[in-house]
Design a protein around this nucleic acid. Sequence first.
DNA 1: CGTGTCTTTGAGTATCTTCAAAATTAGTGG
DNA 2: CCACTAATTTTGAAGATACTCAAAGACACG
Lengths: 251, 251
Amino acid sequence: MAIQLASVSPSEIDPLPVSLPQRSMPQRTDAEAGCALYGSLGLEDRRRLQSHSAPVERRAGTLVFEEGDDAAHIYIVAAGVVQEYKMMPDGRRIITAFHYPGELVGLTFGARHSCSAEAATHAVLRRFSRQTLSDFNDRLPGFGQGLLSHLSDELSAVQGRQLLLGRKTAVERVASFLLELAERAARNGDSTTYLWLPMRREAIADHLGLTLETVSRVFSRLRREHLISTERNGWIELLDPEALSEIAEGD
Amino acid sequence: MAIQLASVSPSEIDPLPVSLPQRSMPQRTDAEAGCALYGSLGLEDRRRLQSHSAPVERRAGTLVFEEGDDAAHIYIVAAGVVQEYKMMPDGRRIITAFHYPGELVGLTFGARHSCSAEAATHAVLRRFSRQTLSDFNDRLPGFGQGLLSHLSDELSAVQGRQLLLGRKTAVERVASFLLELAERAARNGDSTTYLWLPMRREAIADHLGLTLETVSRVFSRLRREHLISTERNGWIELLDPEALSEIAEGD
DNA sequence: CGTGTCTTTGAGTATCTTCAAAATTAGTGG
DNA sequence: CCACTAATTTTGAAGATACTCAAAGACACG
């Protein structure tokens, strides 16, 4: 769960020749969407942070940073979806998080990134130096507290993921995943029943510790049982969140 | 991975009538054991923190705090092992961490605990109020930074656990677990080949997302292949850390 | 409209789990 | 200190869930 940030409007990030499919790729344009850290900053501070950032564009599947890289920068997703992952020598991997527009990527206080990050779809990010973050931390009262509670929230979210990966069945994992996305959408003021899932089945599988075939089978089953319905462009509708919730908790 | 703290000596915590089996239960007595947060505090500050703490004793299997409890206190393990866990309604659970003497338990900046914690063995802890932590945070320069990098380290450790729970086989999980304990022992200046594993097979299983039978079978296999040898009181010897490491990484 | 990519579905298999019993260990009282 | 009981660990056999391999179907793009 990343910090929700008031997001840059598309006009502010298009010095790059970006041509993103607009209908299928929502961008954060609402100024104050439920924003734990950034929200405590004034408009002025935000402008300044904005001015300290550089836009970065990535095609689907290309790296933003790699595990072990010097953690000199952190990023905010402006458009598209970015995934952070860890990989084993033989190629097995786990996607530790999907980051939607407005969310932070690569926040760490260590010397090096502990995960790799790549674009799950064509994506645009904004890049800040760690120094900028430090400056804000030093100058703005409450900023450090915001960081602490953000990291604290992330830790508690990851504990839920441990339960998911270590103990839940395939259906339970998928149901939990859908509901988590719905909760995040709710915090952004987006629809909680129509979800945007632009990532491939393989990415979802790598996020849930399953294979893409199993994920596909579970989706089919949920469709058959009228709990969800899937549409073409990676959009999915939750037809019965109640039932999904019961499945997710294992009742 | 909890903060390593210069630990309280047994004499400082025995206002309670504690009778712990001394030989089988190591306690931290070295004053400065590789200590990320506490280490930056002077002896004086440490004394003060100490004086703000209350001793808490728990028999094996009893609660320290429960998920959802008001997070008014944090704890440091003085003796024994404490486990943090999350549970599903039907009893399935994952142990998110084992905490050895000198390590922090229950650190959060949210209002409520996101995990439960119980003694894995007979254990002694020291309890601090969140307020004390806040005071230190406000007054001691560098303390907040220490907290940030501690949480950051924990997050990166948990990412490794996601890979373990989501993608590793049973042997790989057990080998990874043993090596992680060895690393932690190294940071404490303890032996990296003789490890103290006082928790039950069931607890290890709940930590690794396996069943106790599978854990037992893997131990038997590692014993048969002369990679480890187990002794009576929960002590285990790593006979071939190299080989274990290769298994853990999946080569 | 065709080609390449991604998703879905099927059949067989493997790893881990479940159920069950034996063996070992730990704890208790005589 | 030893014997007895309870608890834990080990081992075995059968079974289930998810995986692997494979092919067909759907979708996106030029």
